[in-house]
């Protein structure tokens, strides 16, 4: 077995140069929580590893012109600890906090979560719901912005060329009337891969008690996470009450049925998604709910 070589760029211009040397089997090493395992198990045999850990520019989280820019190498722990995220994107923080263990969160990165393209990746539904874009740099120095949907093409697959790398995730902030939440079902409370995950964001009209601009990002169903536009349409303009929560539950159940007909996991997921819907709704509109959960 030929040992892989490693390039360790220290800034974006060195990174560009490194990308120029990439061949089809080459791999970008971000946090490593999936790639190192794949290499160790022999599932992945790269000729070249481009380690991003030395590129400080990729770790920055900042707010510019109403958009939050998150460096691709920001770890999940960083997302949890960051005041800007805490204040403006609590649902991304929630998603980050529900990923893996503390150890995984200290190493794993948001860029890696996208690049790894796991159908169950926890930040993806959030990024979809917020219409986040991904900034992609290539070896020529050209940077383009692409949607999450463009970048992730399937389970474990992206549209990125071998000389491209995700440098930034840019999230346009929604206005102050928006509420958002991230919910997940795994097989344990913590350290679990999602069986279902969802981000739900809505614009809430306090006077009319109604919602608009509904955004539903659904994950762990099928080969890649997606926006559930049909459900969004149905919810748009509706008055918030228990009936609406039930509608969301039923519509999501139908969406699951549409997404994975005949799959072994369908009977469970189409039922459990109703619970996910109720939890999401309870998070968005806690006054409607007693806040009952396992911990009470």
């Amino acid at each position: 077995m030929r040992e892989a070589a490693m390039l360790t760029p220290n800034n974006l211009s060195e990174l560009r140069e490194a990308l120029g040397q990439a061949t089809p089997p080459s791999k970008i090493l971000a946090g490593g929580t999936d790639l190192v395992l794949a290499i160790h198990q022999g599932r992945c045999k790269p000729d070249l590893l481009i380690d991003l850990s030395g590129v400080e520019e990729l770790k920055i989280i900042k707010l510019t012109e109403g958009r939050i820019h998150i460096g691709a190498m920001a770890t999940f722990t960083q997302l949890m600890d960051n005041q800007l995220i805490k204040g403006s994107l609590p649902c991304l923080r929630e998603a980050a906090s529900l990923i893996g263990s503390n150890q995984i969160r200290s190493a794993g990165t948001i860029g890696g979560n996208i690049g790894n393209a796991s159908p169950a990746g926890d930040t993806i539904p959030v990024l979809l719901a917020f219409d986040a874009v991904v900034r992609v740099l290539d070896s020529s120095g050209q940077a383009v912005e692409q949607s999450i949907d463009q970048v992730i093409s399937g389970a474990g697959r992206t549209s990125l060329r071998r000389d491209q790398v995700i440098t930034e995730i840019i999230i346009p902030l929604l206005g102050e009337h928006y509420r958002s939440t991230f919910v997940k079902i795994g097989s344990r409370t913590a350290v679990t891969i999602a069986k279902l995950n969802m981000a739900l964001a809505v614009k809430y009209d306090e006077t009319a008690k109604s919602i608009s601009d509904v955004r539903v990002g659904l994950g762990a169903i099928g080969t890649k996470a997606f926006r559930e536009r049909q459900v969004e349409e149905i919810l748009n303009g509706r008055r918030v009450d228990q009936c609406l929560a039930d509608t969301l539950a039923e519509e999501l159940s139908a969406a699951v049925q549409r997404a994975i007909p005949g799959r072994y996991s369908l009977p469970y997921k189409r039922e459990a998604v109703k619970g996910l819907a109720q939890s999401a709704f309870a998070n968005l509109f806690p006054k409607l709910y007693g806040g009952v959960s396992f911990t009470t």
């Binding site: 079902i185 097989s187 409370t189 469970y268 039922e271 459990a272 109703k274 619970g275 996910l276 109720q278 396992f294």
Partner: peptide, 13 residues
């Protein structure tokens, strides 16, 4: 045991 009847998740509390 506390059972979430919507997701089937059970915790021993």
């Amino acid at each position: 045991a506390t059972v979430d009847t919507m997701t089937g998740l059970t915790r021993v509390t």
